[in-house]
């Protein structure tokens, strides 16, 4: 029911629609202008940013980018973030889908309890557990190693993955796997060659839903990775900001490097992103 179509509206309603449009357009500007200004500033000199904050750059000079990417180590931060995100997402999907299969496709005692155990992980703020996590990671001898954050990222991703995938797996008719069982397929084959291919759309949602927060995660890499060569993009950015607090041109360049990849990916995949981010939150 489109009760807000302009053409057929009463005068009073037209005024209301215009009012709403002003709010919406105003908010669009409020979102886009700061990003636009950030990207433009990354092509300017610090002096120009200070003197003419709203002017366009004189030329698209990439020297700030070369400096940040090569000299200031952003290429390393970027690759680290990519590496941690890819490895942990691979295990989130593997372990999470296996657990979802176990919980949703078998009937056994303690089934619900197990499901609730996984779910409780969504409600527990992991950040508050940093002291024991520190002790555990020290105990495993993986302090200041990529494994520390990879394990934590896997733990962060599994609860929502089990939740989303087991919800989907429950809707797959049991007859399908019964037929395969009669044909002598092993349980592993049923999981990997029958159930998982059907689940692919939900797997895409899981990937988007978890990869974004893992890529952006700041707290755990800050705590557990001290060596500069292991740092992720958001943490690298923070040490960079501390060191170069007066070089605004480089700061805006660093921020653009941190933000623009997400922006580009979103432009290409916005349909999936929007679906993915709401999949876990709304039934």
């Amino acid at each position: 029911m489109n009760t807000m179509r302009f053409r057929y509206a009463s005068l009073e309603k037209k005024a209301f629609i215009i009012f709403i449009q002003i709010i919406m357009i105003g908010y669009v500007v409020l979102i886009l202008y700061p990003l636009f200004n950030m990207i433009m500033s990354s092509f300017k000199s610090t002096r120009d940013i200070m003197r003419f904050p709203f002017s366009l750059p004189k030329a698209f000079d990439f020297s700030n980018y070369v400096s940040a990417w090569v000299d200031k180590g952003f290429s390393g931060y970027f690759l680290n973030s990519l590496y941690y995100t890819l490895v942990s997402m691979a295990f989130v999907v593997l372990f999470g889908s296996m657990a979802a299969f176990g919980v949703s496709r078998y009937i056994f005692k303690g089934n619900t309890l197990l499901y609730m155990l996984f779910l409780s992980g969504i409600m527990l703020p992991l950040k508050a557990a940093v002291i024991p996590l520190f002790q555990i990671i020290k105990g495993f001898g993986i302090m200041d190693s990529p494994l520390s954050v990879i394990f934590i990222f896997i733990a962060m991703g599994i609860p929502s993955t089990v939740f989303i995938l087991s919800g989907f797996m429950k809707t797959i008719p049991a007859a399908l796997e019964q037929a395969a069982r009669i044909d002598g397929a092993s349980e592993l084959r049923i999981y990997s060659q029958i159930v998982m291919p059907i689940c692919m759309p939900s797997v895409a949602l899981v990937v988007i839903y978890n990869a974004v927060p893992i890529w952006n995660e700041f707290f755990f890499p800050l705590v557990f990775l001290q060596k500069d060569r292991l740092k992720t993009l958001p943490v690298g950015l923070s040490s960079f900001i501390g060191q170069h607090s007066t070089n605004w041109a480089l700061l805006f360049t660093g921020l653009s490097i941190a933000i623009v990849p997400m922006l580009l990916m979103y432009l290409f995949m916005s349909k999936y992103f929007i679906k993915g981010m709401t999949a876990g939150a709304v039934k």
């Binding site: 296996m98 657990a99 024991p132 555990i136 394990f151």
Partner: peptide, 28 residues
């Protein structure tokens, strides 16, 4: 055999969730 398969599917995820979410809660 069925119990074995269930354990096979559930244990890796359960292990990670236990070691990095539930254990820290009780340790706190």
């Amino acid at each position: 055999k069925k119990a074995g398969w269930i354990a096979f599917f559930v244990t890796p995820a359960l292990g990670v969730v236990f070691a990095f979410i539930l254990l820290p809660l009780f340790m706190s």
